[in-house]
Structures are given as C-alpha cells and as structure tokens.
C-alpha cells in the first residue's frame, strides 16, 4: 500500500517554508511566499483567498504537481522532493485523491470504469465491499454503466469523488468542486467530503471562494499574496465572510 506505520502517527500533510516564484528579474512573481502548515488525519480544511492569491499554486505544490522553489511538502511523512516522477505517480495513485471543477472524468469510460481507474492503473483488484459502500453512499448504484455525457453535473462530480476515495487515500484535494453545481448538488457533494473526513479519516484540502462551502470545513485558511493571513476555526458562512472582509481591508 505504500504507507508506513510511522506515517500514521505524524501529520497526514505537512508543508514547511513553502515558497514558489515564477520568472526572474523585474518580471519575477512570488506566488507562494512562505507557507507552513500541518494537517492531521481526518481534518477538512478550506483554502480561500482572492484571485491571484496563490490558492491554485499552493494546492499544486501540496499535491506534488509542481516543485517548490524552496521548502518541503510531506505526505504521511514522505518528503515529495525526494521522489522522482515514478515515485510521485505512485504516491498520487495510492495516497492522493483529486476532485475538481470540470473535466473530471474520462469521457470514453463508464462511471464504474472511471471510479476504478486508479486501481486499474495500479493493476490492483478493487475491494468490492468498499466499492459498494462508496457507490451506495454516493447514490450512484444505477448509474455505473453510464458514460459521463449521460450523467448530470452533480452525478459526474459524485463519480469523481468516488474515484478520489476508492484507493483509500491519505489526502483528497478538491479544487472548486462545487463551482459548476447547483446549490442542492453542491451541498450533497460537500456532505460526502465531510463524511469522508469524519468516517474514513481522509484529510481533505479544498480550494474554494464560496463561504457556504468553506463552512463545511474544520478550518479555513485565508491566503493573500501567497501567504497565510488568518485562520477561521469552526467556520460558519458569516465568520468566513467577516474574516475575508478583514483580510481584504
């Protein structure tokens, strides 16, 4: 499975002095300017901030999709900077799940094939009980044979969540997961993510700019100019909005 016992006791996800700059000289931009954080197993955090605050870059760095200029990212104690492409791929496949706004699924595969894709790529047999549990809790039972084009936006997004959870990952990254959904479907999706953190102990990192969505998290990290400018514990939509107003002032 690629996990070590030592990893289970430390933070699921840890960032130390994370910096990411683009360009050189006058055109140099610092997208992430020194971020430190440690997330426990089963913790659900939301990352918020205005456009250009570095949310997406931070998430790419945390997920090992981008390499930091300096600093380190550790997932279950494994330093990502020590991994080559093969190691990173293996880590993504086994310890990380992804859900994002659009173009989440492979259009030529059925819902079931999409869900099982990470296992197929790893050459692993699916755990039938876990799959049935996932499918049932996400309400996808009668949709497994359909292709993405035959599913509603909410259903597609639930298939993406199932895919993100099917490997039993340590961390699930969600990038604006409710951005393209109506209110009810968005709410259902957030409840699933909350459930994954509470019941299965997955650590969830969600980038969003919707205070209502952020209110489902345990903590909200407010990002501005690439740095953390505040934390809202046990957030509600109102406290998040107030904190955002303070951050922008």
């Amino acid at each position: 499975m690629g996990t070590t016992d030592g990893g289970r006791h430390g933070p699921a996800l840890e960032a130390v002095g994370l910096v990411k700059g683009f360009g050189t000289g006058e055109a140099a931009v610092t997208a992430v300017a020194g971020v430190d954080l440690a997330l426990d197993r089963g913790e659900f955090v939301a990352v918020m901030g205005p456009s250009g605050s570095g949310k997406s870059t931070l998430m790419n760095l945390l997920a090992g999709l981008d390499t930091p200029t300096s600093g380190r990212v550790l997932i279950e104690g494994t330093d990502l900077s020590g991994l080559d492409d093969r190691g990173l791929t293996r880590l993504r496949r086994e310890r990380i799940g992804f859900v994002f706004q659009a173009f989440n699924l492979v259009p030529t595969l059925t819902a079931e094939q999409n869900i099982l894709l990470p296992l197929a790529l790893a050459g692993r047999r699916p755990d039938r009980a876990l799959l049935e549990d996932l499918v049932e809790s996400l309400g996808l039972g009668d949709r497994l044979r359909h292709r993405p084009a035959e599913l509603s936006g909410g259903q597609q997004q639930r298939v993406a969540v199932a895919r993100a959870l099917v490997t039993g990952p340590a961390v699930v990254f969600a990038d604006e997961p409710t951005g393209a959904l109506d209110v009810a479907a968005g709410r259902g999706l957030l409840e699933r993510l909350r459930d994954a953190a509470d019941r299965q102990g997955r650590t969830v990192v969600m980038v969003t700019h919707d205070p209502v969505a952020a209110a489902f998290a345990d903590r909200v990290l407010l990002l501005s100019d690439g740095a953390l400018h505040g934390v809202v514990e046990r957030p509600t939509a109102d406290t998040v909005l107030a904190a955002m107003a303070r951050a922008e002032a």
Binding site: D85, R86, T89, R92, R93, V106, P118, L121
Partner: peptide
C-alpha cells in the same frame, strides 16, 4: 491532452 493529464493525475505513469 487534458484527458491524458487526468490519467497522469490519478496515477498513470509515463509508460502507461
């Protein structure tokens, strides 16, 4: 390209 990137994202390595 995006579909391929998605495969890479969910854990397909280069040779796959």
């Amino acid at each position: 390209r995006r579909e391929t990137a998605l495969l890479r994202l969910v854990g397909a390595d280069r040779s796959q």
